[in-house]
Design a protein around this nucleic acid. Structure first.
Length: 410
RNA sequence: GGAGGGGUAGCGAAGUGGCUAAACGCGGCGGACUGUAAAUCCGCUCCCUACGGGUUCGGGAGUUCGAAUCUCUCCCCCUCCA
């Protein structure tokens, strides 16, 4: 290999520092540096792949851990390859569930891809992103091709996958088709000739399959970059839509702020590290101040909430969200902005009916319970009796629990 | 192809003719205390025309005064052997 000059060498170091920050694992880490060096020397951008599940298009903060990293590559002139697993999605990820994933129509896939595109735009420059669908090549393989592909990997190797190992130990079933999922993901990397594949640590096995197959097909092997998984609001499970423990980047500022405030303290630092734009120095200061007690955990969390809102909605919205939070939750006032619902029903309504019609609760029984538990307020006054009848007036405010408010307009 | 085990509320799991709208645990929700954190405590957790009524225990049909519990049948899942 030709020698890098001094300037190029420091450029390699600069980029490496950026890329490796906050990454859980790089496999193998030396190769990343080689790739970056080559790219700089030959002035050829690296291709960074990110695989996406076409069935869950709501982007939340968990995704942004990876997206932020991609963005850094993009900022330095490298090419991001977004791969929509439209074909793979039909087979189903081996998650231990017996229920087969429902097949998506082409329209749904397109729609979901578009949603990704719009939401990713908040983090990266979509103009420069390459978009791919793996059905393009996977749907063309015939049975012979598939057998050939399968011949390039051993069963023993496949069974090393944590999930499979676990299920074998527990005596749970593994369908044969599930073995093909890693094969397909690996083959995608062959097709895309990617230099790096990014993903969460849960993608460890699949991403290494990319290396394996690239080698079998005589291509240059990709580097695996694994980002830590972000736990959701419950502090235990990985953030995901199905667990309902997520903060969506599309959500309202107040909601984002509020949800951020409800994360367990132990998670704060991790959130700061993975989903905010603080510099390593700032992060270090927050950490030490928290430890010394100089920074109250509550205040740190408020800073976190404000920062997240700022990133996705701007400075102004962040200020507003914080002020709203202080007045509503710390001082018990009513929020400034309450969703308004136009009421064209009767003027005199039983509370229980009202709560259901406003869609604040699912059934009258639930409404009665909620009232008995002292969780319903009308214009700030607690409703004591389940039989209460409300006279509807303009701007009447109904509150359920601590956070649900609705204002009525006639 | 053979043998066996199983499908109960969001999940896990009791219950095997009336006392079961169904124990218990988890989760979830509300309240108290707080910092919409943790811990703790209290209450709730099928629906409704609500001191009562209606529909629930994989689907359907039956036996019975009465079934999640018994019979038949269909569907689905799992384990072991070949």
């Amino acid at each position: 290999m030709e020698q890098l000059n001094q300037e190029q060498l420091s450029e390699v170091r600069r980029q490496m520092e950026i890329y490796t920050q906050g990454v859980q694992e790089i496999i193998p880490s030396e190769e990343l540096e080689v790739k970056v060096a080559k790219s700089i020397m030959k002035n050829r951008p690296l291709k960074i792949k990110l695989g996406l599940d076409p069935s869950a298009p709501d982007v939340h903060l968990g995704h942004t851990v990876v997206l932020n990293k991609l963005r850094l590559f993009q900022d330095n002139g490298h090419v991001i390859q977004l791969l929509i697993g439209d074909f793979t999605g039909k087979i189903g990820d081996p998650t231990g569930k017996s229920v087969a994933r429902k097949q998506l129509t082409d329209d749904e896939v397109k729609h979901n891809a578009k949603t990704y595109f719009e939401q990713f735009g908040k983090v990266m420059d979509m103009e420069k992103v390459e978009l791919h669908f793996n059905s393009k090549w996977l749907s063309k393989l015939n049975f012979e091709d598939v057998i050939n592909l399968a011949g390039k990997i051993t069963v023993a190797r496949l069974m090393e996958r944590d999930d499979f190992e676990e299920r074998i130990a527990l005596g749970k079933p593994i369908s044969l088709h599930e073995f093909f999922y890693p094969l397909m993901q690996g083959y995608d990397s062959v097709e895309l000739e990617c230099d790096i594949e990014l993903g969460g640590t849960d993608q460890h096995f699949n991403i290494l399959m990319g290396r394996h197959f690239q080698e079998k097909f005589g291509r240059e092997k990709q580097v695996a970059m694994l980002m830590p998984l972000l736990e959701g609001l419950d502090g235990v499970e990985k953030m995901s839509k199905s667990k309902k423990n997520y903060i969506g980047i599309d959500e309202q500022p107040q909601d984002i702020y509020g949800k951020a405030m409800s994360i367990p303290d132990e998670l704060m630092v991790k959130y700061f590290e993975l989903i905010t734009d603080f510099s390593p120095d700032d992060l270090a200061k927050i950490k030490t101040d928290l430890e010394s007690g100089e920074l109250h955990p509550r205040d740190a969390k408020m800073l976190l909430g404000k920062t997240i809102v700022r990133i996705y909605h701007g400075e102004e919205a962040a200020d507003k969200a914080e002020k709203g939070f202080i007045s509503v939750f710390q001082q018990g006032a009513m929020p400034d902005e309450i969703p308004t619902i136009v009421w064209d029903g009767k003027k005199e309504v039983a509370v229980v009916d009202l709560l259901v019609e406003l869609d604040m609760l699912n059934s009258k029984s639930e409404a009665r319970r909620m009232i008995q538990n002292k969780g319903v307020k009308v214009n700030g006054e607690k409703v004591e009796d389940t039989h209460t009848v409300i006279s509807i007036t303009n701007d009447l405010v109904i509150q359920v629990g601590k956070r649900k408010f609705v204002k009525i307009h006639i």
